[in-house]
Computed example of a mutant assay.
Amino acid sequence: MKEIKSIAALASRFGMLPGVGRKTALRYAHAVIDFTEQDVEAFCAALKEVKNSVRLCKVCGNYTDDEVCDLCASRQTKQICVVSYPKDVTAIERTGAFDGVYHVLHGTLSPMNNRTPDDLNIKSLLPRLSDAEEVIIATNPDVEGEATAVYLARLLKPLGVKVTRIAQGISMGSELEYADAVTLSQALGRRTAL
């Protein structure tokens, strides 16, 4: 069957999104065909609007449509939670367990990918430490996240601020027999008193 160029082109664009493979991209492209003209216009307008109005908060580096995000404008600054990406802020905010501010690095250290400290949003964190009592490092528990956490801890501790790392280990509802050795080791090493 002959490929329809416009569907293939649209699927190719959807395929640029993270986690969208070829089949899903084609499914999305076919769904757009069934959109009304108004739906297509609204979809295009939403894409343009997000591209034109969303920027980085000048304080923390999170996404915002103002110069300073709502979190930086309204939260206490005694605790700064350092995360790799804006999506991590969203994940932590869903818990309702943190009332401080954030600092978004926009990546992690990765020598394999030539990503150095100069490539991350680290320099703008340093002036924020004057009000902070604690910096919580909440990078992913993978090689790059751990390397970033160690680097930040070494950089920040001499500046007199308390540096902590989010706990890692066995997730709620999982079974020990299915945990990998590194996760189980982390859970044992970071145990707390009851």
Rank of each mutant, 00 (worst) to 15 (best):
D70F: 06
I92D: 07
L126H: 08
R115G: 00
P141G: 08
K78P: 01
Q76S: 15
L129V: 08
V143H: 10
P117S: 13
M112N: 12
L120A: 07
P141W: 06
G145K: 07
D66H: 14
Y63F: 15
R154M: 06
P141R: 07
N62P: 02
T64H: 05
L152S: 01
Q76Y: 07
S53F: 05
C60D: 01
Q79M: 12
N114K: 15
H106D: 04
T64K: 04
I137T: 04
P117N: 11
L47S: 08
I80S: 02
K58C: 13
D66S: 15
A138C: 13
V150M: 07
L105I: 14
K78C: 09
D119C: 10
S84R: 01
Y151K: 03
S110V: 09
G96Y: 10
C60Y: 00
F98R: 07
D142Q: 10
E144C: 11
L120Y: 01
S74I: 05
G61T: 06
C60M: 04
V50E: 08
E146F: 04
E93L: 09
E67D: 14
L120S: 02
K78G: 14
D66M: 11
A138K: 01
R128Y: 05
Y151Q: 03
K51I: 13
G100S: 10
E93F: 05
Y151R: 02
L120H: 02
E146R: 03
C69E: 00
D131P: 03
I80Q: 00
T95L: 11
L109Y: 02
R115H: 06
D131M: 13
G61D: 03
I122L: 03
N52I: 08
A46G: 08
C57L: 08
N140M: 13
P111W: 11
L125M: 10
S53K: 14
L155I: 09
R75C: 05
L155W: 02
E144D: 15
H106N: 06
C81T: 10
V104G: 01
K51H: 14
T95D: 11
V68R: 02
G96S: 12
H103Q: 08
R154G: 13
